[in-house]
């Protein structure tokens, strides 16, 4: 659905995006991760045909960026970093205005506006000026605006950045719901927890592409592979048994928790659980050790600081 081939953008001699090459599949939720100034927003702006690439090519929905800008704009929806709503206009009028600009027929326009406002729990406030809304509510309206024309590809730049946890959850659930509608979703985010939870694959960039893969793949490859096991009756027998499990590299004890490091947690963890249970251990929780993707991200970005 999206294809980048050496996509590059320079501003006055400074390279903001350097030779990005990757593909995003149809119906995929794809995360673009990177520190501030890594070129995430510039990449999205190029893919939405807001600015032109300095070099390289990109295709969205089969249309070439730059050459077929109008076609691309018709099939994409964009949520920029700031909601950019018209505060003096009502929620309904904001959405209606954009739907009209996208040429959405009247009946579908009304249906979509109602559907999205209800989904975001804002239908009752549809006639209120959005300037009177909280940040979270405004962000919800902005997401609805980016969806109002039923785009095939949705670009979301930091969709939950300004939201309270409950609003962020609503947005995340909404994004996951959109996945069922087979839409391709391209998310720029700093929120690694969010990327881990909702993205099928992520690319980490710092001007250049550093790596790309599924969150679990990146954790496996670049994370420390730590797993946390909380045991009700942790004792030395269980500890020895875990240490003997094939593939376990290191075991740390903290209270009634074991922090187990291995190269391949997905293979080793079932063996660890088996060993604990065999030795009479009562497992309370098995969780991924300290910040899976975050660990991989920090390792990769740290190594590739510009």
């Amino acid at each position: 659905m999206i294809r980048l081939e050496g996509l590059t953008r320079r501003f006055n001699g400074r390279t903001a995006v350097d030779g990005l090459t990757f593909r995003v599949r149809e119906g995929e939720i794809f995360g673009l991760l990177g520190p501030n100034g890594a070129g995430k927003t510039t990449t999205v702006r190029m893919l939405c045909c807001l600015i032109r690439p300095s070099e390289g090519r990109a295709f969205v929905g089969g249309y070439e960026v730059g050459r077929e800008a109008m076609k691309i704009r018709e099939i994409v929806g964009l949520l920029p970093e700031s909601p950019g709503l018209y505060g003096e206009l009502s929620a309904y009028r904001n959405l209606d205005f954009y739907a009209r600009l996208y040429g959405v027929p009247k009946q579908r326009r009304e249906e979509n506006i109602e559907r999205f406002l209800k989904m975001m729990d804002l239908w009752d406030r549809r006639n209120d000026p959005v300037g009177s809304f909280s940040k979270g509510m405004q962000q919800k309206i902005a997401i609805a605006r980016s969806m109002v024309h039923d785009p095939k590809v949705l670009f979301l730049d930091e969709p939950t950045a300004a939201l309270a946890p409950d609003s962020a959850k609503v947005v995340r659930d909404f994004i996951l719901e959109l996945k069922h509608e087979k839409r391709t979703i391209f998310i720029c985010t700093h929120n690694l927890y969010e990327a881990e939870r909702i993205c099928d694959r992520v690319a980490i960039i710092n001007t250049k592409l550093i790596t790309l893969g599924s969150p679990s793949q990146l954790q496996r490859e670049f994370g420390s592979g730590k797993t946390e096991v909380q045991i009700k009756n942790l004792g030395s027998r269980i500890l020895h048994a875990v240490k003997k499990v094939k593939g376990v590299l290191k075991v740390e004890v903290s209270g009634n928790k074991l922090l187990i490091q291995s190269k391949d947690p997905e293979t080793v963890n079932p063996r660890v659980v088996e060993a604990i249970v065999k030795n009479g251990g009562k497992i309370l929780y098995v969780t991924r050790g300290a910040h899976g993707l975050e660990e991989a991200y920090l390792k990769l970005v740290g190594k590739n600081e510009v």
Partner: peptide, 10 residues
């Protein structure tokens, strides 16, 4: 920052 979403329309 109301121009960017407007510029993204066809």
């Amino acid at each position: 920052k109301q121009l960017e979403p407007l510029l993204a329309t066809p």
